[in-house]
Simulated scan of single mutants.
Amino acid sequence: MSVLLEMAMFPTDQGESKSEYVAQVISLIRQSGYTYQLTSMGTIIETNEIGQALKLVEECYNILESNGCNRVYSTLTFDIRKGHDNRLKSKIESIEKHIGEVSK
């Protein structure tokens, strides 16, 4: 199974710049060992099970909470597909077969 999670998470009560807090979230995602891709508007993460993805979301929230964030905004989008893996890479490769290399 492949669970693709596109996530954005940041505090709304900690001033204008959010990079210090987002960096802490990305560091946790990096340490998780899951394949991920950081974009300017969110992060895409691939896990093998929905429970792994949901646990990671909770851990990301906990990082922000432990750093004094009292209000956190988050968006989550899932694409769950049985019988497949490595879709973070293969979905892009599928498009590139049709139009050539794309920006990554």
Rank of each mutant, 00 (worst) to 15 (best):
N67S: 05
L56H: 05
Q14I: 00
V72K: 02
T75W: 07
E49R: 11
Q24K: 15
G100A: 05
G15H: 06
M1R: 09
Y36N: 08
R71Y: 05
N48E: 13
Q52F: 02
T35R: 14
E59A: 13
G51D: 15
Q52G: 08
L64D: 04
N67T: 00
M9W: 03
I26L: 15
S94I: 00
L4E: 08
K91L: 07
V25D: 05
Y61T: 12
L76T: 08
Y34T: 00
M41H: 13
M9Q: 02
F78G: 10
C69K: 10
L64K: 08
G33F: 13
T35G: 04
R87G: 04
F10K: 03
R71W: 00
G33N: 10
V72D: 05
Y73W: 06
R87F: 03
G83D: 14
L88Q: 03
S19T: 15
T77E: 10
Q24C: 00
T43A: 07
K89Y: 01
N48C: 00
A23H: 11
T39P: 04
Y73K: 02
E65S: 14
Y34E: 05
S94C: 02
T77V: 08
G100K: 09
T35P: 07
H98F: 13
Y73I: 01
H98M: 15
E101F: 04
K18L: 15
V72C: 07
G42N: 08
V102Y: 01
T12R: 01
E49A: 09
F10Q: 10
E59F: 00
I45D: 03
E6G: 14
S103E: 13
S94K: 14
T35E: 15
